[in-house]
Structures are given as structure tokens and as C-alpha cells.
């Protein structure tokens, strides 16, 4: 029972904190670019405003258009219930790496269909590009997770991984883990439409991917979609924090452990956000057809991770 409560509350925490981290990311980026930037709480305000506004739906859109934001949001809720955040072993009965990958697919698939609703050219373009990227992401995502599970004895259950890694001690900072983590980090950037894959802060027709798909959304639908995408980056960040570098995560539900867990996790997520902000400030968005190079690199990294797992 405590397990369920803890699990629910950590998911709630993740959902609640995701706009905050999005705000931190934006703020850091602004500061690095010598701008003042908006408040770190601005995303909360944005979402709240969107929820309050009335909705405009394209005449050509069908029932699916309204349904999609709920599915996207629902799948992110599901993922946040699955991911270890503060406590390692809450999500045991269903928290599985492979399922996770496929739930991301669901999210993306729905978003792409949403882009095609309404018959807008922007939506179509965004969907098309998103699909190209997701094809190239998929193998490296799976492989980096495979390396991770291979490192910890073959289990794909997420809550098995942190204790296994911690149990192995620091020697585990083997090349395999580092390589897999860097590959995973690249997929994080790609999946979440960050620079150099996409520029989240632009609506330039020729460059946008993620925003293109959302172009027909407004009001509550847009709010849910925005919230989901903030949750998505949060989930990715906490996966890196909890699965690849789990030190500090709470292995038991004793209050002391939990406190350490919360603190270390927030720190790790913050570090990742700062890293993203740094990358976004120092890199420009790549040309669309240069992206495969980057994703192939990510694939190579994860493959190397697999190889080094056995050879080194």
C-alpha cells in the first residue's frame, strides 16, 4: 500500500516539477545568451492560461483531433508512473524498459496523426520529419537500453537496474555505461526536439518539426500537448538519472533514503537541463539531412557500448 502511495506521489512530483525544469532550462539558456529571460515559473502560467482559453478546431479535423491530446497526456502519465524517480523499486509489476520504448512510440504516433489532421501543410511537414527522426532514433534507443540491461544481468525491469548498478560499485563506470549513456543522451535530444535536431523556440516554417505538428492545436489541447512534452523531457532526464547513474536513488522507503533520493535526483535532473541549455546555446540547429549523421553516431555509440560490454 505504501508502495502504491509512494509510486503515485513520485509520479505526481514528476508531473508537478516538469514545467519548473522546463522553465529552468529556458532561463539558463537565456542567461547564457545574455538575455534576462522569463521567470522559471513561466511554463506554469502558460499552461494554466492555455487551459482557461477556448479552443478552435479546424473544420476538417475529426474526432481524433480532440482525442489525441488526452492520449498523449495519458501515455506520459503512464510513463511517469513507470519510471523510477526517487525510489527505485516502486514500479515493479509493469515498469519495463521495452514497454517504455513502445509507449514513446504511441505518443509519437498519435502526435504525428494529430499533425496530419486538418490537412495543414505545416502539420504534414512536421509529421513527416518527426517520423524520419523516430525511425533513426529507434535502434539506438533500444540498443542503449539493451546495453544497460546487459550490464546489469539481462533484466529489463527498470526497478532491477539501480540496485544492480549500485551493487556493482564504481567499477561499473565502465566504457559500456558511458557509451550507452551518451547514446541515450543524443536520443534524448532528438526525441524531445531539442537543438541540434529541432529548435523548440522557433516557428519558422522550413525548420520546425515538433511545433509543426502542434500548429493546429489551441486552448486546452495545446496545453495538454505542451505539458506532455515537458513531461517527456523530464522522464528522459530522470531515466538518465535513475538508470544510468543511479547513485543516490532511494533503494528502500525509509525517510532518510527518500530525502537523499529526492535531493540527488533533483540535482541530476538540474545538471542534465543545464547541459541541454549549454548545448542549445553553443550549437545551431542542423540541416535536416545532416541529422542522420548524428543519429548514426548515436547508433554507433550504442553498438560500441554493446561490444565493449563483452570485449572489455
Amino acid at each position: 500500500m505504501t508502495c502504491v502511495i509512494l509510486s503515485l506521489s513520485q509520479a505526481a512530483l514528476m508531473i508537478a516539477l516538469s514545467p519548473l525544469f522546463a522553465g529552468i532550462l529556458r532561463k539558463t539558456k537565456a542567461r547564457m545568451q545574455h538575455r534576462v529571460g522569463s521567470s522559471v515559473f513561466q511554463p506554469y502560467r502558460d499552461v494554466a492560461k492555455l487551459f482557461r482559453k477556448s479552443e478552435t478546431v479546424s473544420k476538417d479535423a475529426s474526432w481524433l483531433f480532440r482525442f489525441i491530446p488526452y492520449v498523449c497526456f495519458g501515455s506520459m502519465v503512464l510513463l511517469s508512473l513507470m519510471t523510477p524517480f526517487v525510489l527505485a523499486d516502486v514500479a515493479a509489476p509493469y515498469g519495463d524498459l521495452i514497454s517504455m520504448v513502445y509507449i514513446f512510440t504511441l505518443y509519437r504516433f498519435m502526435m504525428v496523426l494529430g499533425g496530419l489532421e486538418g490537412g495543414s501543410v505545416f502539420g504534414g511537414m512536421g509529421s513527416s520529419r518527426e517520423m524520419m527522426m523516430s525511425v533513426l532514433i529507434e535502434p539506438s534507443l533500444l540498443l542503449s537500453l539493451m546495453a544497460l540491461s546487459g550490464l546489469t544481468g539481462g533484466s529489463t525491469v527498470m526497478s532491477d537496474i539501480p540496485p544492480a548498478l549500485i551493487g556493482m560499485g564504481v567499477i561499473v563506470l565502465a566504457p559500456a555505461l558511458v557509451l550507452a549513456a551518451s547514446s541515450f543522451f543524443i536520443t534524448l535530444l532528438a526525441e524531445n526536439a531539442r537543438v541540434p535536431f529541432d529548435n523548440p523556440s522557433t516557428h519558422l516554417e522550413l525548420t520546425m518539426v515538433h511545433e509543426g505538428m502542434l500548429i493546429e492545436y489551441s486552448g486546452r489541447g495545446l496545453g495538454l500537448m505542451e505539458l506532455s512534452s515537458m513531461m517527456r523531457i523530464m522522464i528522459f532526464a530522470s531515466m538518465i538519472g535513475a538508470l544510468f547513474f543511479p547513485w543516490g536513488i532511494a533503494l528502500t522507503s525509509s525517510p532518510a533514503d527518500l530525502a537523499v533520493g529526492v535531493a540527488s535526483m533533483l540535482l541530476k535532473v538540474l545538471m542534465i537541463m543545464l547541459a541541454i541549455a549549454a548545448i542549445e546555446s553553443y550549437l545551431a540547429k542542423y540541416r535536416l539531412f545532416r541529422l542522420p549523421n548524428l543519429l548514426t553516431a548515436s547508433f554507433a555509440l550504442s553498438l560500441l557500448a554493446m561490444i565493449s560490454l563483452y570485449i572489455l
Partner: peptide
């Protein structure tokens, strides 16, 4: 794993395309 991943995802793309262009817009 890479084969399953990439072919599965490519197939998903083509189904999204199938559904999107038959039913949507």
C-alpha cells in the same frame, strides 16, 4: 534488436502515413 527496432519503426511510419492519408485531412 536494431533490425526489429528500425523495421518496426519504419513500418509504424508507413502505417501512420496509411491512416493519415486515408482517414485524415
Amino acid at each position: 534488436v536494431a533490425v526489429v527496432g528500425i523495421s518496426g519503426m519504419m513500418a509504424a511510419v508507413s502505417y501512420a502515413r496509411l491512416y493519415g492519408f486515408m482517414f485524415l485531412g
